[in-house]
Amino acid sequence: MKKIVAVICGLVVCLSMASAKKKSSGKFVLGLDDSFPPLGFRDKNNEIVGYDIDLAREVASRLGLELVCQPIDWSTKEMELNTGKIDCIWNGLTLTEERKRAMACSEPYLANAQVVVVRNNGEIKSLSDLKGKKIGVQAGSSAQEAIDGAPDFKKSLKEIVEFKENVTALNDLEFGNLDGVVMDLVVAGYSITQGKKPLVILDETLAPEEYGIAFSRKNKSLRDKVQKTLLEMQADGTVAKISTKWFGSDISTIGK
């Protein structure tokens, strides 16, 4: 009996140590779509970089944590968060009332809008010109939600093709397989400029929006720590420096 008790006690100690080790792992696991420039993407060396990554790395450093960038399937991002595989979703996540109810979201840190990208041949100049046309959209994205939120526009389209990421959709548009791509303004502008693509963004927007960071509702304390750190970074000029690096000016909305 004493041996059995000793074994049980040993197991309890081991489990406790494992649990403590997990809690003190010192890692901040960020879930992202790693093909979403300029917020989070892979550079020529296959390293994950971007505006959101720079912000998160500085936040993690100030909190004494190691940033771990974990690529995920964007269409299952909420599940990845709720199962504890990631600590947050930080990669151009549009704040919606539904997401605010389902997750513990930060305050907005960047303004954005859902827009339509078309070829620059001048054939399509407005949303109405897309009647009977085929457009692409990233599955599970706020762009898809923006289309659903504009029923007249959606009904006018011939076909909506879903893609895993925007990069492939833009390539198909450039090759003539699509007539337009609905996506985030911030990402569209960067992709067109950096890739020198023969594409333009229509002036009409489908929906204005704001980006935020999502955490599990069970982990509001981490959300609050990150939010507090971002405000400190905004106050000391760190956010402005990072924003200028990626966008040429400070376009952050933190604390504004």
Rank of each mutant, 00 (worst) to 15 (best):
M1T: 11
K2L: 05
K3M: 09
K3E: 08
L11Y: 05
V12Q: 04
L15N: 02
M17Y: 14
A18V: 14
K22P: 00
S24N: 15
K27S: 07
D33A: 04
P37T: 01
P37C: 00
F41K: 00
F41N: 01
N45I: 00
I48L: 03
V49P: 00
A60N: 00
E66G: 06
I72R: 08
S75A: 07
E80L: 00
E80D: 11
L81T: 10
L81D: 05
G84E: 06
G84R: 06
L93W: 11
L93Q: 07
E97Y: 06
K100P: 03
A102M: 12
A102R: 12
A102D: 14
A104L: 09
A104T: 09
V115I: 14
N120F: 05
N121W: 10
E123H: 12
I124C: 04
I124N: 06
K133R: 15
K134F: 02
G136Q: 15
V137Y: 02
G140D: 10
S141K: 04
I147R: 01
D148A: 13
G149T: 05
K154M: 07
K154R: 12
S156H: 07
L157K: 13
I160Y: 03
I160Q: 08
V161P: 08
F163E: 00
F163W: 05
K164N: 02
L170G: 05
L170A: 06
G176M: 14
L178M: 08
D179L: 10
D179V: 05
V182F: 05
D184R: 09
Y190G: 01
S191Q: 11
I192A: 06
Q194H: 05
G195C: 01
K196W: 03
K197V: 03
E210P: 00
K220F: 05
K220L: 03
S221K: 07
R223F: 00
R223S: 04
T229H: 09
T229M: 12
T238L: 04
A240N: 08
A240Q: 13
S243N: 11
S243E: 13
T244N: 12
K245Y: 15
D250Y: 04
S252P: 03
